[in-house]
Design a protein around this nucleic acid. Structure first.
Length: 554
RNA sequence: GUGCCUGUAGCUCAGUUGGAUAGAGCGUUGGGUUGCGGACCCAAAGGUCGGAGGUUCAAAUCCUCUCAGGCAUGCCA
């Protein structure tokens, strides 16, 4: 809707420029205004051309304005065009144009805001991902919220999206976990048995050791290298992975693919390695095999195959991304934890070495989360085995609040998560504020139905009766939903949707406070029901994109 | 040392890729409802956009330098 208006205005302005100045460069921009006192749309055309035409902006603007006023067509529904000081030309759109949005929303329903900008392009979004060595933490919860919501948004914009979880089940970390488990088990019989320096300190490892002891007693003590042990270790690894799966599923995230790093070994990794070797970017040194990342701007070369023969995480990740490419994705997006900082540049260098278009892969860091309680930061220490898990967080504040809080902020800044606020049932709590607007509307609709008003046919209501400023304001923000969806997809920014919903909820509450919907006046009631029904639809659509419920009662 | 992220109101953060007088929420202060959900609304106060230059009609936004904080800098992931 807004796009249509923008296009029309752009055409008109360009036509005027052509007529007056007969120049070919017609680059201008038409934007929504920030403030109502500047109308609804404005163009910087006069200022853009001031240099080329060697004429002051106000003078250009004056001529354009006069010309535009002559050529305004009726269907645009422009009330007024005016020139303002620095050289902006402002367009005032008639109420009628805006009010049409209510019917449009109701007719489109859950598809309102959808577009086909993505043209069915295949995108793979990799997020959360982890070693199967312990419970998922709060950063994983943040990544899950952002990744899942972005996928919803991309689908809504016409992309063919797949969600993927990368299981790092083949590396050094898994060995460290197993060593930790063995050590905890042995410590039951020998408290002095040393615990590995970089081991896993969490209590869950101790619990597993106790469990092993319960089943096998001391019989495993001398069988560490045995088959029994191998079975035990894979039993616990798959149990941990199972718990991780349950964590994300309870959080409402459904991955299309759980990708095991193991499946890259040995063949796919070998193939990737051979490709790099053939291109001449590798060499042996100190018994290991290296990648010449310095050729791509790194400060030192990086190891691909370790001295002992095992590939590094870096090598596996190269193979992994080649695999994604081979699976036919037009684009790959990765969300990684803050500890992967250094890894990103290297991965991109490897992609460049392999001749892959830079734009094919986008990698984002999901920054750390500081849990706050009563203004105090809760200390997290993985080493000491104390760290906040995703499960604890969700069970304390709930899925909706957790997701909304993570989605309010852009992913690349650190986040202070106020646990008390997330639980508070008041308008201070943003998630309640938005959900309350939705529930409130549902209650109005229910009330209307109780007095036998037919909500289904409400799109037939007489919209001529809509003219209050609060109503027009609602129309304008509803009309902007499609734009917000597009922008949030384009900039990978789900938090735009959250911000939009907060604003929409605010405008609705204000409207509600000023105007009663269901009254004696039947015609006006119908028109206002159309307004609140379309508002409900947009709230629900937005919440759905965030993966948050839109409750009918609270 | 090097690289990335961040620096905007007392606090937590937006700012549609360069636009007009920089915006919300919380907190503070003062108001509002015989009503369809008060889990609500309105108003006020609060700012050298970390700092200094530069680019141009126009800079929180782009460039250079600089200061502060965070993270990374493993043959871990």
């Amino acid at each position: 809707m807004i796009n249509k208006a923008k296009k029309n205005i752009t055409k008109i302005v360009q036509k005027s420029i052509k007529e007056i100045y007969s120049i070919k460069d017609l680059l201008i921009s038409v934007e929504r205004t920030k403030d109502e006192k500047f109308g609804d749309f404005s163009t910087n055309a006069a200022m853009m051309h001031t240099n080329r035409l060697k004429e002051p902006p106000m003078s250009i603007g004056e001529k354009l304005c006069r010309n535009i006023n002559k050529s305004l067509s009726k269907d645009l529904l422009v009330d007024k065009v005016e020139l303002v000081k620095p050289g902006f030309i402002n367009f005032y759109i008639s109420k009628k144009f805006w009010i049409a949005v209510f019917r449009e929303v109701v007719l489109a329903g859950e598809n309102y805001g959808r577009n086909n900008a993505g043209e069915g392009k295949k995108i793979l979004v990799e997020f959360v991902g982890s070693n199967p060595t312990g419970p998922l933490n709060v950063v994983s919860a943040r990544a899950a919220s952002i990744g899942d919501s972005l996928c919803n948004i991309l689908s809504f914009n016409g992309y063919d999206v797949k969600r993927e979880f990368y299981i790092n089940d083949a590396g050094e970390q898994v060995s460290r976990f197993v060593e930790s488990l063995i050590a905890r088990y042995k410590q039951i019989y020998n408290p002095d048995f040393p615990f590995p320096d970089e081991g896993y300190y969490g209590d869950y490892v101790k619990d597993m050791a106790k469990e092993l002891d319960k089943i096998y007693g001391r019989s495993l003590l001398d069988k560490i290298a045995d088959d029994v042990w191998n079975r035990c270790r894979s039993f616990y690894l798959s149990r941990i992975l199972g718990n991780q799966k349950r964590d994300v599923e309870d959080f409402g995230v459904k991955f299309d693919v759980w990708f095991s790093e193991k499946t890259l070994h040995v063949e796919k990794i070998n193939n990737a390695w051979i490709k790099l070797k053939k291109l001449g970017f590798t060499y042996p040194k100190d018994g290991a095999l290296w990648f010449q990342s310095t050729k791509f701007g790194d400060d030192e070369d990086r190891v691909l195959i370790r001295k002992l023969g095992a590939p590094t995480y870096f090598m596996a990740d190269i193979a992994y991304h080649l695999d994604k490419l081979e699976r036919g994705f037009d684009k790959a997006i990765d969300f990684m934890g803050p500890d992967h900082h250094g890894h990103i540049a290297r991965l991109k260098m490897a992609m460049k070495a392999l001749g892959i278009d830079e734009k094919w892969l986008d990698v984002f860091i999901v920054q750390q989360v500081n849990l706050m309680r009563g203004g105090e930061k809760i200390k997290m220490s993985k080493r000491a085995g104390r760290f906040e898990t995703m499960r604890d967080l969700v069970s304390e504040v709930g899925k909706d609040a957790a997701r909304f809080f993570f989605l309010m902020r852009s992913q690349n800044s650190q986040l202070d998560f106020d646990l008390n606020l997330a639980k508070e049932e008041s308008s201070k709590n943003p998630v309640y504020y938005v959900q309350y607007a939705h529930a409130r509307i549902c209650n109005i609709l229910k009330h209307a139905e109780e007095i036998k008003i037919n909500i289904e046919k409400i799109d037939k209501a007489n919209t001529e009766l809509i003219n209050k400023p609060e109503e027009i304001e609602l129309a304008k923000i509803l009309a902007g939903f499609g734009d917000i969806c597009k922008v949030s997809a384009l900039t990978y920014a789900p938090h735009r949707i959250a911000g939009y919903l907060l604003k929409l909820a605010g405008i609705f509450h204000n409207f509600y406070n000023k105007h009663r919907v269901v009254t004696e006046n039947k015609e006006l009631t119908a028109a206002r029901l159309l307004i609140v029904k379309s508002t409900r639809i947009v709230l629900a659509n937005g919440l759905r994109l965030l993966g948050i419920s839109a409750p009918e009662k609270m």
